[in-house]
Each structure stands twice: as C-alpha cells, then as structure tokens.
Design a protein around this nucleic acid. Structure first.
Lengths: 191, 191
DNA sequence: AAAAAACTGTGTCAATTGACACACTAACAA
DNA sequence: TTGTTAGTGTGTCAATTGACACAGTTTTTT
C-alpha cells in the first residue's frame, strides 16, 4: 500500500487521519495473467491503482478491429469513468497482460471519502482536476506526434512496457499496424 | 448569459442563490475575427464559455508544423487547464476564427465559487468529473475512428463548423492534410 | 478600386502504409 | 513431452498519403 500512499502524496498534503481513512477503503488484490478484469457490457464499480504488471484496456471499432485504448502500467490510477460515475455498462474490456497486483477502491468507498470532510473532498477535487489536465495534455501530445515519435516516447517513458507487452498491442496503442512498428524498429536498430 | 445558465443546469441542480453567485463572477465579452485570445508563453487566467463563433486552439510540433488541438465551438467550455490551475505559461495559442461572443470566469472567481459553500464545491466537482469522463471518451473515440469517419462525425455533430471554418484547419483537427480531406469530400460527393 | 493575402480545388509523383502470406520461435496446456 | 496456440520477423504488392505545383476564387487591406 506504500506505493499508493506515495502516489496520493504527489497530489498534496492531507492529515494522517485522513490518509488512513482513505487507505482504509482500499483493498489489495492480485490476478493472474490472462484474467479478465472488466468484461464487455459490465458495469465498472471500482477505481484501480496498478502496483505491478500490465493491463490491456481495449474496445472494438465499427469494422470489428480491436483497438487498444490504453496499456495500463504500474503506478497508474485507472477506471472507466463513464461507467463508474454514471453506473452504466461499458462496451469495452480489460484483461491482465501479466500477473497484476493492484489496489481497488469501490464506489461506496469513493463516495464515503468525498463525503467525509472538507479536506478529503478538496483532495478528491484536486486529483480529478489534475487527472483532467494530464489527460488533455496527453491527448494533445498524441495529436502532435508521429507514430515513430510516439514509439520513441514510449521507449523513454515506459521501457518496461515495450519489453513485456506484445508488439501487436504496442502497435495498436500508438495507432499503427504491427508490421509498420517492425519497420520503425528495424530502422532505429540500423541507426 | 442564458446559454451558460442552461449549460450549467445540464450538470445538476443548484439553488437560485448559488446559481446567481456563480453567474455573478462571470463577464460577457466579444472579440473580432482574427483577435488573439491566448498568445504563446502567456499564462491563462480564465475559463471561457463560447456563445457564438469559433476559436482556433493550436500549437507547433517539433517539426514546426502547426497542429490544431481543438476548434472550440459554441456551447462549449474551454481553457488550457494546465496553465490555469498551475499558473504557468502555455506554449500554445488561441485565435478567434470569426467574431466570438463568450463568457469569462477568472481564476479568482473560480476559487471564490469553490470556497463559497458545499453545494457549489460539490457542483464544481461534478462538472470536473464529467468533463474528465467526456475527455476520455472523446480521446477513445478518436483512437478508434479513421480520418474519414472523423470527418463524417464532424459533419453530423458540427455541420456549422465544417461550413464556417477553413478546410486546412478542419483537416489538421481531424489529423490529416487538406489535400486528403479534399479527396474524402470528393469521394463523398460522388456517392 | 486595385493589390495583396488567404483559401480552395486538383493533378502528379514519390514515399509510406496496410494487408496478406509464410517461416520461425516461444509459451502454454493436455 | 508433444501438440497447440500466440507471438515475431520479413518480403511483396496494391492502396493511401503527403508534398509540391499551379490556377482560380474569395477576402482583406491599402
């Protein structure tokens, strides 16, 4: 749970009592490789924080192609917010690409934390605001980078992911085919 | 200001007094076509709500190409959150593509609203959460659509934008060149 | 009213990409 | 251990794309 505590600390200071209250609503779990965390048409009732391993979050487009929406890596907080907040089913799915250790905060816990006191509700507001900001920056960066740049960026920021996750999935994640990603790799290896 | 009032109502109910308090911190403005709303390396101190007209929000990538990050259309709330929240300069810029009428909420007003009472701070939390959710959905949709699908989607959801905004900018927004967008248009016209 | 600037439409050509095919290797289950 | 499945690397070819060039139109400025 120390990893999650540090993750929270990055967003600001809160009292020890509040931090304990917060962490008190969270449980640690572990799932094996290949296990489905979210199946299609299911409602997502938790927020997840990944400690080790990788999750594959994907959906299918109108042509039936599988689209990787995110490869969730350690030290990252993830959920399908639309499903979580509005309590509606999601068409997407999420599978463990390796054994995954994670922390889970259920909806009831999330509500309790927000309602507990002012410091905690402000803390949640701060986190939500920062996540929104980060998401916008990420989307903008993605827009302005070529496929090759996105791959180089992944190599720098998540070398472990590039090593452990199948090329097909990495390729789909950065928005291209596995063959094109091979060409990029070959080119980079030659240089 | 009625348009903004309706926009807020979509996010939930608040008391008349709180709605008045909220709107009391907002001023209406108008800028002519071509006017720069945000210049590069400036700090963004407001949240904007567009009533009429279009804004062009863009940056430059490593190759010096201008990348359209967003064409902001009416009934939309926009800012550069990273700059607004963290009070840091933004490298991006924003220009009016036509005469634009908008509402402006400055940082001081935003803070005052969040601090006023529980209903308002919860209201802001709800809005932030929904915007985050919407942003994630938008990014995921974009990932799973082809250029042509994105154009068809724009035609459906923002026909006015497609009519009034230069093709170059629309093309850049959906992630292609103006020539390719022409080809798509020609193909669609033929069908 | 004339000149300049911005925007649009289109053709050509080289470069990039995706789709397919196939051989090879690694991981996993019976 | 062996068969099966999943994943990787590479070559070919057709289709798509971006870059460039240029003519025509609209908008803005002087």
């Amino acid at each position: 749970m120390e990893m999650l505590r540090d993750y929270f600390r990055e967003f600001g200071e809160i009292s020890d009592a509040n931090m304990d209250f917060l962490l008190g609503h969270i449980v640690q779990r572990k799932i094996p490789k290949g296990e489905v965390l979210i199946r299609p048409h299911q409602r997502v009732n938790s927020i997840y924080f990944i400690e080790t391993g990788f999750l594959h979050y994907y959906s299918y487009n109108d042509f039936g192609e599988r689209i990787t929406l995110k490869v969730v890596s350690p030290n990252y907080c993830w959920t399908i917010l639309d499903s979580f907040v509005n309590e509606i089913p999601t068409p997407d799915q999420c599978v463990a690409l390796s054994e995954v250790r994670y922390c889970e905060l259920r909806r009831t816990g999330y509500s309790a934390i927000k309602a507990q006191n002012k410091e905690l509700s402000n803390f949640i507001q701060t986190i939500t605001e920062k996540l929104l900001s980060a998401k916008v920056i990420e989307a903008n960066r993605k827009s302005s980078m070529s496929i090759e740049q996105r791959y180089l960026d992944l190599l720098q920021t998540h070398p472990d992911m590039v090593r452990e996750v199948p090329v097909q999935i990495i390729a789909s994640f950065i928005g291209t085919s596995r063959e094109t990603l091979h060409r990029i790799r070959r080119k980079l290896a030659a240089a």
